[in-house]
Write a protein that binds this DNA or RNA. Sequence first.
DNA 1: AACATCTACAACCGCTATAAC
DNA 2: TGTTATAGCGGTTGTAGATGT
Length: 248
Amino acid sequence: MVRNLLRPNKRNNTTVKKGTWSGEEDQKLIAYIRRYGIWNWTHMPKPAGLARTGKSCRLRWMNYLRPNIRHGNITKEEEDMIIESHRLLGNKWAAIAARLPGRTDNEIKNYWNTHLKKRVGNGNKLPNSFASDIKAKPSLPTIDTPKSEPDSGSQNVIPTMPANSFCTSYGVHGDDKTSENSCYSPCSVIEEEESLWEQFLALRDLEIAENFGGTYMHSGATDPALVCMEKEFLHHSGSCEEFIMDLW
DNA sequence: AACATCTACAACCGCTATAAC
DNA sequence: TGTTATAGCGGTTGTAGATGT
């Protein structure tokens, strides 16, 4: 029994898939973000070839697919940090996650509810007023995380940008395969070679380029792939053929 | 072997905050 | 200033796999 439902979306008359993400869906999302970056979660699923809501895509990316996510057992040190942070902050999972590099709020929340809640209980929680005081003070010392501060110098920086300012071929994943993080990560598996879906996206770029001057040029396209290609082509001095070659 | 129960965690839902218009 | 769209957060649910009977 897999949570794998299809629900019609009344708003745009499409069918939205729910439930567990398949490997193919992961691959599509990673390939799309790898190529185009994160520009708008709501409008991303369609051009990415996903029958998911933007919200679902965001959650999947943030909690599972994003680079530098640590999967696997929580260490003793991390557990201590969770307990201590929870004592200070209460159920502020995002704030707690910010103190634990590579861990997501969802993971910490699950870990707390399944492993620590009974053991630690709520007895050590400080009053809410204290927790909100801490929240209001961004100077609270925290451990750097990819979420709050993308690691500089690395290519594992996900571009986030408004839809109208985006550009193609942003590097989402680094080439560093010597990472000490040996935990399973769908990202690292797919990183090994260009995915089929990524190749498809590249072919689509080519198709778009071939149609410049015609259909796409004045289509008012909103798909960033088209918008950006359009901009790039307009600024390209060479022929269409040269433009295509430059893309590779 | 078959079924029931438990555990861990991925994913969904509803709400709030923020930004843009 | 009000409205709408989007992102993010925390609570909760549902499922897969493990374990017990």
